[in-house]
Design a protein around this nucleic acid. Structure first.
Lengths: 185, 185, 185, 185
DNA sequence: TATGAATGAGTCTTCATTCAT
DNA sequence: AATGAATGAAGACTCATTCAT
């Protein structure tokens, strides 16, 4: 059983989000370990980045599981709200995934990401079929918008422009209801 | 008359968006000039990044002007649609601004950005006051979501996951109307 | 225990004296280490030059101590002869100090150098007071001439124009007695 | 007849004496001309350095001529005093020649320098033969000492540690009579 | 296992030089 | 003849990585 690398990954993602060009030395010091130890944990910088990508997809994947996305019987908007709730804590990893566009290229990560995207898209598509979701926006695009909103909200929280306890609601409401006032309801 | 640096900035932003770690050499070659010339235009990498940030804010600022955001008499959702239309072409610069978090810290850029954000927020606030926009989402958040959303759409177009001619509508519709189907209308 | 940098400084001063424009690469190779290691020892060329200046003043300062310059009871010309004897081995560092005029400006080095100069000046002044030294030449000038002369002799030895075993005597005799033949004695 | 380059050389030697690593740009600006013009005057940096060396030897050679060094009938110490008087104004060029050890290698300059040295050495030798100069110091060494003293004095004057109108006397007295007080005379 | 020291590789930066005006 | 713009070449510098302890 390898040493638990998760704390190192967590501090790394926080640092890399603020300064994407951080050196291995800075990453190591932010984690409170030595350069060489960091290299022992992750043999090479690409390995670290890959591990970060893996941790990101794993966390988000777990969040999707926890939201019970594949439950065919549930109300789609309600599931999307749950999903946002569960994904919100992974906002940092999500933002990282967005920034590090060079992850595209790693087949395994690409596959994992495609799978997650597909699961959310399928959920939206089911909503479109049963009439609860708009059909003039592609499910793929709604899925992408969800993740993008979560990342943006995470960033806004980080920067103090959005209250943390308000962030999930802000995302879900905007995503599902839009910014204009509904005529009645 | 100083040499025109805009084409260089344009090719640089395109390249840096694909590979944020591009070297000065790659940036220079992408612009069709030599490394040394690039360094004469922008003395040092930070200077180049700052110039990119400046160009980004300038372009987006012009787009906001073109959308006539400060027109008090106009219908707010309509203005927001126009705004998305006009900002969409700057999506690349916007995405760059989002990724390069190290720009935060430059007082001039920060001020310019705050000003733009404030103009859009004011527009949303006017909509909230005259009943066309929801009041349970802060104007600040809607403004931020708009920009982040445009960036995401630009990215999706770039990656081929969204049709370019559909992008502005997709953004505006989702932002304003949300993803759920409205009861009637 | 910090690594011993003295051998590196020694080879650097020898090289820089021959070719003041030597690159960091050449300096590193002359010391038998890699460029990167040289940069780790002295972060940047200015740091190396400063360290060389520090080593120079340290060595010369030790030589002045060894010559017992502050001994008030001794015969001044004899002390000056001893001083030349002791400073002669540092001629290389001294010549370097003279050539690298950019060292002037470093407050710490300037202070150290002023102190050394002052000690020798005081010695000469004492000789002027007790009648063993000429009073129509300022003590400051004699002190400065001594150092410059040692550097010149070191250089002449280096270039093969002066025998090493003769250098100290040549310096001391010329400095103290002058080049003309004394009437008798 | 080429444009008069002497003012450029003069400002260059002054600058290079203070900062031997000055760039062509700095040299050009110090002379009040453009880089390209400097390159037109001296095709390449080596050409400039060579020209500086040539000007230096020319000036010093003229000074030696003016001192009438080859006059066999004159009193040797008196000629040396005249020589110091005439060489003193070239102190800057002389100091430059000393610093730029890489000039050794240019056969023409080496020859010119050797010739000058030889003329002064011959003068000293004549003094040794007719009993006016010490014979326990090589003529070559006395010649070298003269130039070294002049350079040192020029530098001391430049730095404000020696009065300009006192400099020639200080050099000549120290060189000829030494720093100790003569028993009587 | 963890670390300070050392290094090869590659980037950033600047310089001397040339060219079009 | 003189200048601003452009560039090839070369040096300074830093980083990721390895090794001895």
């Amino acid at each position: 059983m390898p040493t638990d690398h998760e704390p190192v990954l967590r501090s790394a993602v926080t640092l890399l989000l603020r300064r994407p060009a951080s050196s291995m030395d800075e990453i190591a010091r932010a984690a409170g370990i030595s350069r060489a130890t960091l290299h022992r944990m992750f043999p090479g910088r690409p390995a670290l980045i890959t591990a970060l990508g893996g941790e990101a997809t794993a966390q988000i994947s777990r969040a999707i599981d926890a939201a019970d996305v594949d439950d065919d019987t549930a109300d789609v908007p309600a599931v999307l709200r749950r999903l946002v709730d569960h994904v919100m804590p992974c906002a940092e990893y999500l933002a990282f995934l967005y920034g590090e566009s060079s992850l595209t290229g790693d087949p395994e990560l690409d596959a994992a990401w495609t799978l997650m995207d597909e699961r959310v898209s399928a959920l939206v598509r089911r909503g479109q079929e049963n009439g609860s979701m708009r059909v003039d926006l592609t499910a793929q695009w709604v899925s992408e918008a969800l993740f993008s909103f979560v990342a943006a909200a995470g960033w806004a929280v980080h920067e103090g422009r959005l209250a943390r306890r308000d962030s999930a609601r802000s995302v879900a409401e905007l995503l599902l209801g839009g910014a204009t006032r509904r005529p009645h309801r």
